[in-house]
Design a protein around this nucleic acid. Sequence first.
DNA 1: TCTGGGGTCCTAGGACCC
DNA 2: TCTGGGGTCCTAGGACCC
Length: 345
Amino acid sequence: MPAPWVLHVDLDEFLAAVEVLRHPELAGRPVVVGGRGDPTERAVVATASYAAREHGIRSGMPLRTAVKRCPDAVFLPADNPTYEAVSVQVMDVLRGLDGVVVEVMGWDEAFLGVETDDAEAFARHVQDAVRSATGLRSTVGVGDNLLRAKIATGFGKPQGVFVLTARNWAEVMGHRPTRALWGIGVRTERTLAERGLHTVADLAAADPAALAADLGPAMGPYYVQLGRGIGRERVDPTPWVPRSHGRETTFQTDLDDWDAVRGEVAALARRVAGEIAAGGISGAGRPARRVGVTVRFVPFTTRTRSATLPAPTTDPEVLAAAALEVLERFPTRRAVRLLGVRAEF
DNA sequence: TCTGGGGTCCTAGGACCC
DNA sequence: TCTGGGGTCCTAGGACCC
C-alpha cells in the first residue's frame, strides 16, 4: 500500500522569476522587486534574484540599502496583480496533478498531500509539471507532516528535493538553533535561550508544563512539539476564509498635519469598505464587525486602537466615521509615517 | 540597514454577567 | 456582608509568517 506523504512546493525567487519570464534579457542579472521600483523611496525588497542575493541583498531590506550594495541591480516595481495571476496558474497546475490534495499557503507556496511509493520521484514530477506549464522553477520539501515538509524545503533550495521525516529529524535538526524551526523567530529564540534552551534537541527535551507557565498555555507546549518535529499530518484543501482585510500606507514624507491624517484615515477606511463590499479575493462580501486603526509615529513607534462596530457594515461612510472615532482615541498628535485601517469580520 | 504591506494567532487584564 | 468562581466579550500588544 502506498504511504501518505506531505510535499511542500515553494517557487524559487518567485517575483524576480516572474519578471525574468517577461523580460528574458534580465536572466542571470541582479533583479530586485519592491515598492515602486525607485530605490530612493521608503520601501523594502519583496524578492531579490539569486544574482542579487550574491551582493547581500535580502527580502525586507530597505531599497536604499539594496542599491548601495549593488548599484547595478535592476529595480522593478512590485506588480501584485500579475504575481497573483501567475500564482493562480501554478496552483491550478498543482490541483491538476493526479491524486493530490492542495493547501495553498501564499502566492508562491503550497502543501500537497499524496499517497505514493516514491515521494522523491513524485516531487520531481511536480517540479517538471510546474516548470513546463509556467516556466517557473521550484523546490520541494518532502515530509511525514507539514512542519517537516516545510522545513525540508529550506535544505532543498534552489531547484532541489529534500526529505525530512521522523527518521532523520534528530540528525538533521537536533544541533541547529531553535530559530531554524518554522514558528520560532528572533524573539522566541532569545526567550528560550534565557531558559537554557539553545538547540532543537534542547527544546525537544524540555518540559511542556514548565514552558506553559513561562510562555503561555498554548505556546509553551507547542514549542516543545516543534522541537520534536511533530505537527499536522493532514493537508486541508478547504478554501481559506479571511479573518480580516486592511490597507496601510507609509508616507514618503512624514505627515504632521492632523487634518491630513484624518483625511488619509477616512480615505483608507472607504477603500477597505469598497474592497470588502466587492468581495473578490480578500473580503468575500462579508461586513466588518470591528475596525482597527494603526498609527506609526515618527521615528517608528507603532500603536493600534480598535472598536467593535454597533452593527456589521460594508458602508464606506459608516466605516470611515468609525475609523475616525477610533483615531481620536490616540493620545498624541505627533508626526506620523504610516497609517493603516483594518476591518475584521 | 532609518526600517513595506498583507495577514494570522495567542495572551492577559478588565468588564460584565450569573 | 470585605468577598467565589466560571464564562464570555472587548481591547492592546506581541510574535510570527509570506
